[in-house]
Design a protein around this nucleic acid. Sequence first.
DNA 1: AATGAATGAGAATTCATTCAT
DNA 2: GATGAATGAATTCTCATTCAT
Lengths: 194, 194, 194, 194
Amino acid sequence: MDDLESKAARTRRRILDASAHEFALYGYGGASLRRIAAAADLKVGSLYFHFKTKDELVAATLVDGVDWARTQLRAAIKAIPADATPQERIRLAVRGHLEALHASHDRAAAVVRMVDTLPAELRASHSEHERRFARVWLDFLREGQAAGTVRTDVNVRVLRDLVVGALNSTASVNPSALRSADLIAETWATLLVP
Amino acid sequence: MDDLESKAARTRRRILDASAHEFALYGYGGASLRRIAAAADLKVGSLYFHFKTKDELVAATLVDGVDWARTQLRAAIKAIPADATPQERIRLAVRGHLEALHASHDRAAAVVRMVDTLPAELRASHSEHERRFARVWLDFLREGQAAGTVRTDVNVRVLRDLVVGALNSTASVNPSALRSADLIAETWATLLVP
Amino acid sequence: MDDLESKAARTRRRILDASAHEFALYGYGGASLRRIAAAADLKVGSLYFHFKTKDELVAATLVDGVDWARTQLRAAIKAIPADATPQERIRLAVRGHLEALHASHDRAAAVVRMVDTLPAELRASHSEHERRFARVWLDFLREGQAAGTVRTDVNVRVLRDLVVGALNSTASVNPSALRSADLIAETWATLLVP
Amino acid sequence: MDDLESKAARTRRRILDASAHEFALYGYGGASLRRIAAAADLKVGSLYFHFKTKDELVAATLVDGVDWARTQLRAAIKAIPADATPQERIRLAVRGHLEALHASHDRAAAVVRMVDTLPAELRASHSEHERRFARVWLDFLREGQAAGTVRTDVNVRVLRDLVVGALNSTASVNPSALRSADLIAETWATLLVP
DNA sequence: AATGAATGAGAATTCATTCAT
DNA sequence: GATGAATGAATTCTCATTCAT
């Protein structure tokens, strides 16, 4: 009765994990609550005790994924040694992003897979979280520019979009992308350092 | 009966257009043949005269989209004036890609929206077309490197993936992306020219 | 292809009959499309070819029932011999009403059973049909008053409501009511003739 | 623990009230225990402490409604002044009935709405209560006939059915019926007095 | 070349009910 | 007395697909 993690909380976690996997595989429209329930070791009807609606589950999955990824990315950036070279700094941030995407039991990938086919209401409620994630990159790049470790001859917002877009696209195009994470990190480092 | 464009061919085109729109909006799993048929001014059953199965329609839509985009991109590249500056060359290629994505009645966007939730068989049969599209960029970048107008200190394949990934991501993230096409082109030009 | 009664029309009739039976038994909220489909020798999904929605089926069933009952009642009234006594006139009208209610394969009973638990939209769209039915009685009573065969010391609209309410209530209270139809007719005749 | 009205009894009352409202709105088949629980400020599961089953709750609601209405009607009849005119006597009884129906927080209306779609067992167990209610009218009418204040040229049982049916039908047909209660009472008085 | 009518499987959601806490 | 968490069956509805016409 006074579990640190109540039964409901544990079940909710299982549902969210199953949910992330399902949405990452099939997208918003193709996902099935039946399969999600089965993967979470529940009967379909039981989902509704935890989430009143499919869209509520989607929303929770999106928040779960994007917030977790933001935390990961920010941690990776914070962990950069003070004496790292400019290239090294960018490499570590890029790897942080890619690891969040790929080593996350689909939590972050689900977001990328769903985001562009969401119905209007969900998209709206999600966009703020997305903005918060993007701001981590924006701050990182801006600080780099201020410190002279990121080139300043480009619009930093556009640059942020390109970086985020390119990295996220690895979630789909290439499931073995993590193997080439080093190459990708290296490439961005080369492009971004003045 | 002796139309240059037979009735069937015209209907097929209407179906493919409706199809592209639907898949771009809802993704592979969320698309509905009923809605596609309605948009093409047909009853569902009639689709089956033109495509034996949903997946066959998907495959045709993918081919239609990616081949059309490749043609567009290649035309844009071929149209680059011989005396264009290095920056100008890249700008024009990027704009060619973005215009193919956005000014295409969803044909190309449908591909981007579907590609990462395709079932295995479709993914396989599609990947060759995707490779052919990517090769256009690869050739363009390689020739640029050979001519000294694209920097050579990066792995050209990785670079190609980043460029394509970043550009395609504009199909989702930002519906008003075309307005910023110039900015994006400018940014890539800055990053890529040595 | 050129059936007088097309296949669809015949199926629709079967559905409406099954529908009337189901709604008469269980009311609006308790009726099941599964059972209706089974009774009409169809699979559930097939219902949707003929009626886009449960409420559309309900609406059609209501119209079917009330219009049929109105026709029956009007025919019974029109069939009253010109030389009938005042009592006889009323007896025949009452019997017409009761027969419409009970000898109708549930068509009219379904209306009575559903009408007070209908959701707002259906109720609205139904009320005009109900008014048209009630007008048949109103006209009959008014003409009776004019001819001196129906007492004139009561508000004719209220009287109409009492008669219709009392007769319709026999649809529920007493399934063997038809046996007492003569008694009921006799009683109304006694009450209404001056 | 020693309340005159124990906690359980008060909760039971809240449930019965919520129940009456729900059944009046949706009928037997369309009512939802979840909604009833919510309206009574409980969770669904808690209902089962007070009623072992949905049908037990239905039965209790029926008894509650019909007995309450009978009590109301009897009180209204008993309150008729000894020197009231025949018309006045009938008017007051009719008004007693209508007030029980409409001014009862749905208690009596729930009965009328449910009664004709009840499953067989419930109908059986309910019919005796219904008979007891009907007997109040029967006695009133018989005594009226004996006293010469109600016409004797009609079958009194049939008359009772007509009166009860007509009055109960005002629960559905006309939600603003109470406004016309006086007219209805007046009309019955006119019809029934010799 | 297209439609009409149907099907079986599966979608999301709600139901009454249970039972340990 | 009441809740939290779950279940299995049922709900309405949509799906891709078939096939005779």
